[in-house]
Amino acid sequence: MKIPVLPFVLAVAAYPVFSHGVNVIWELRGDSVHVTGSFDDGQPMDNAQVTVFSGAAPSEPYLTGVTDESGKFSFLPDRVESENWDVQLRKAGHGEIVHISLSDAPTMQGGHGRFSVMQIVLMAVCVVWGFTGTALFFASKREKRNAHT
């Protein structure tokens, strides 16, 4: 049933509420992605349904599984297929999806860190500055040495 839009006086006072839910965290160890799910009350999402999606085909499951008794699940992403992976955890009507960019993952054991443009520029400036300072230092010594000759 569609009814006409009528003016409503809303938002005189508003306060936010967040539906109770789940928390999912992930980390890259070596080449493996490790995902951990828990409910808001801290209980692990044990035996939760896990669906992994590759960035190359994000609407189709890449693999499925279940979390262990600690709410943990691990998989080995194929970096040739994609650097981006989405992992969905679901249990008892609660679910969450996390978006994983392997390129942006913190550098850990075997992880592949990536520098920003700003970082690269600063590193270049510092290197040039370092070489220049070193050259000036020796040039200064040579001038002093010459001054004594």
Binding site: A11, V12, A14, V17, S19, R90, G93, H94, I97
Partner: peptide, 16 residues
């Protein structure tokens, strides 16, 4: 907390 997108949870603001 009744409103979701599937099983995905929402940020909800109560309007009074």
């Amino acid at each position: 907390t009744l409103g979701h997108s599937g099983e995905g949870h929402c940020y909800c603001t109560v309007l009074q």
